[in-house]
């Protein structure tokens, strides 16, 4: 008996062991895979949570920076306005 014939005979003997999945199992598998594929991952959840927080923090930083810059500019303007010219021994000096 050749090896291939021998294997064919073993296949015939083993055929009852072959398991076939039914329609119900296949349908369940399709639904479970679809659910896993569309379900957000931990990373997605973190990103979705972090995005609005990051936007809020960024907005606060922008507002604070703008306020500080404005305050700084108004202080500089006030300081310039307070400079008074002083003359001493014919030379012009300046004092705050």
């Amino acid at each position: 008996m050749t090896e291939e014939n021998d294997l064919d005979e073993l296949r015939k003997l083993a055929r009852p062991l072959r398991a076939e999945a039914n329609e119900e199992m296949l349908l369940r598998l399709r639904l479970r895979v679809a659910d896993r594929i569309t379900r957000p991952t931990v990373l997605d959840v973190l990103v979705n949570w972090f995005r609005p927080v990051a936007l809020a923090v960024a907005a606060v930083i922008v507002i604070l920076t703008t306020l500080l810059v404005q305050q700084d500019q108004s202080q500089s303007t006030e300081m310039l306005a307070q400079i008074t010219p002083v003359s001493l021994s014919g030379e012009d000096l300046y004092r705050d």
Partner: peptide, 22 residues
């Protein structure tokens, strides 16, 4: 595309299940 995933699961799922049960 979820439709594409489903196509592949439908095409190969039955055999994959059979192998796993085996």
């Amino acid at each position: 595309d979820p439709t594409a995933y489903d196509y592949l699961v439908t095409k190969y799922g039955r055999r994959a299940l059979g192998i796993a049960i085996g």
